[in-house]
Design a protein around this nucleic acid. Structure first.
Lengths: 82, 82
DNA sequence: TTGTGACTTCTAGTCCGTA
DNA sequence: GTACGGACTAGAAGTCACA
């Protein structure tokens, strides 16, 4: 099954957020985006723009290079993994 | 001066398009987007979404990993460089 | 072959709520 | 703490004529 970019980015956001024990609400506040929107992005139901994505990456305190490196690894970032 | 993600992605798209001697029109046709839209994205005046970006990356016949690897290198992808 | 302004349609993103 | 819904506004998608 083909993974879309939206799926990959969603996975990476959730991964780096949880790695810092950060809540969706905290990420929302830090990035200046809405909490329900962060929720939608992580569930791959939202098609985010580059500007908003950059705000999230910055809020995660990582660089775009680090972020996309994980996001575009082609090991399947499966939702079933804890 | 701070480079935005929009700038980096714009640079990478133009880079890989030109590397294949592909015109904006050809890239537009291959990606299913409008030629003037591609033009806007390459000039960083459009804030593209992930779905549109994925169409472009696919049309460039490269993987997201390869694409973002170039896009997020932090050597300044300066417009003044030929 | 590409840049640009102007435009309409559609969706990104917000804000309110419920479970 | 998160998912999900409805209603709304800002801004992206998508196209055209012309330089």
């Amino acid at each position: 099954m083909q993974k879309t970019l939206v799926n990959s980015i969603a996975f990476a956001i959730r991964h780096y957020r949880k790695a810092q024990n950060m809540s969706q609400e905290e990420l929302a506040n830090r990035s200046g985006l809405d909490r329900t929107y962060i929720s939608g992005v992580e569930r791959s139901v939202r098609n985010i723009t580059l500007e908003s994505l950059e705000q999230i990456i910055t809020a995660l305190r990582i660089t775009p290079a680090v972020f996309f490196n994980l996001a575009t690894r082609d090991n399947d970032n499966d939702v079933s993994n804890k």
